[in-house]
Amino acid sequence: MMDAVAPASDARPDLAAIAADASGERAVGRPSVYVYEAPVRICHWVNAFSIIVLMVTGYLIGTPLPTVAGEASDNFVMGYIRFAHFAAGQVLAVFFLTRILWAFVGNHHSRQIFYIPFHRKQFWKEVLHEIRWYAFLEREPKMHVGHNPLAQTAMFTGFTLFVAFMIVTGFALYSEGQGIDSWQHKLFGWVFAIWPNSQDVHTWHHLGMWALVVFVMVHIYTAIREDIMSRQSIISSMISGERQFRD
């Protein structure tokens, strides 16, 4: 059925026929589809907010602000920054976990960012098509109800894997302050078996932040671009949950 796509501009195809998601399923035959359920949307925005807080505070932990004057007891600058970082980290962890749980309960779109269908040839064909579209080699984009295949790949690696990495290393680093008898250390202390020197864990955690910065930039850009270019709503979908198809 996927060969029914990429229509010539003069032949207006049936929307439902071309709006297929990456799993190759046919979308329901109406110009608006309910894609992102409420928990998915809530998780998205809470995680987005947490990640922004984590990036800013994380950077400031690595490169602290100029020294504040006055007595140590009058100030708690690093303390507040670190508190914000840890708090946002815990929130991210909880909502990331919630999001994983929802993948079991929610609709099939909610599972999309947790896997890549490696085994399906068609999927990779689609990825190639999307790459060609972004490289201006395709005149028309395809329509997708959920994430397009390239987006799914990007979401899985750029978001799911990276954020999981950040949560694991983050908790491992947090366990250092909590002590080796803490549950954090029991759960995440194995990270130090990989990098015995926690300086390395810091370094990789820091680099992970930059990886997420790159992800966020691409994520926002493509969301806006696709919203304009690919005849389907992207940004408003993450607020309303509805994906609308234009033209």
Partner: peptide, 14 residues
């Protein structure tokens, strides 16, 4: 270091 790598990467992607 991580900042140098990250800033170059973010700059390039930007």
């Amino acid at each position: 270091n991580a900042d140098q790598i990250g800033m170059v990467a973010a700059g390039a992607v930007g």
